[in-house]
């Protein structure tokens, strides 16, 4: 569960990234977070991961109080979520298999379990045939699916996808959204951060719309801002 309660974030350069954001996402939900660039989407992801703390307001993520938690607890917060970054952030010196196995190694999973679990997850994202390849040898869509496999492998409570359709072609985009939808059906909370209007309109899901650091709409259905992006 994620709770933002009247959250403000002012950066040292004077930018007001968030101006009193409040919302609540329950376990098992599928939510779009949309808005122009600069509306505060990436700041919200940073807060969720405790990359940054709010200037004011309360944030609770899977039982972790972002303001009060100790620094050394940050890794444990991050293990409760799987993040698919816009730039994928795969480790280039590791094969796809090793990249996907990494979160398991971090929590001390045995080799035996890793050898079973990684091929299973690679199968879900249909990337089994690229297990021994390095990220550089993959297409954008393949890299994204590898990143999704890594996000999934630990059975996290929340999957966060940052602009999942930003760096891939429309066919891949559709495929990745279907995968996220399936994952959500298995009970995982899915948060998709995007500015892709068509993408949001295709799915009839809850949409949190941000503008200038404020939530201007939070409802089920299509994209409510109609200006061009």
């Amino acid at each position: 569960m994620i709770v933002f309660d009247d959250v403000y974030k002012k950066y040292p350069n004077g930018t007001n990234a968030l101006n009193g954001v409040s919302f609540k996402i329950d376990d098992g939900e599928f939510v779009f977070v949309v808005g122009h660039s600069g509306a505060g989407k990436s700041t919200i992801i940073k807060m969720l991961m405790h990359e940054d703390k709010p200037t004011y307001g309360e944030i609770n993520v899977n039982g972790f109080d972002i303001n009060k938690m100790r620094k050394r607890k940050i890794p444990f917060l991050r293990r409760t979520m799987g993040v698919v970054f816009q730039d994928f952030r795969l480790i280039e010196t590791m094969t796809v298999f090793e990249n996907v196995a990494f979160p398991l190694r971090v929590v001390g999973t045995s080799r035996r379990v890793i050898r079973r679990r990684v091929p299973y997850v690679l199968g879900i994202v249909r990337l089994s045939h690229k297990a021994k390849n390095y990220p550089k040898e993959l297409s954008g869509g393949e890299q994204q699916r590898a990143a999704l496999a890594r996000a999934l492998v630990n059975n996290p409570r929340i999957i966060i996808a940052d602009e999942p359709t930003g760096n891939v072609d429309p066919v891949m985009a559709k495929e990745i959204m279907e995968l996220l939808s399936e994952i959500n059906k298995m009970g995982t909370t899915v948060i998709v951060v995007t500015h892709d209007k068509d993408l949001v309109n295709t799915f009839n899901k809850r949409v949190i719309t941000l503008e200038d650091g404020k939530v201007i709409s939070d409802q089920t259905g299509g994209y409510i801002i109609h200006e061009e992006f």
């Binding site: 991961m49 050394r72 991050r78 795969l90 480790i91 971090v106």
Partner: peptide, 15 residues
Amino acid sequence: HEISIMKYIGATNRF
């Protein structure tokens, strides 16, 4: 870069 990715994934400093 590699170190920061490891941190995003939830690796402890010791790890």
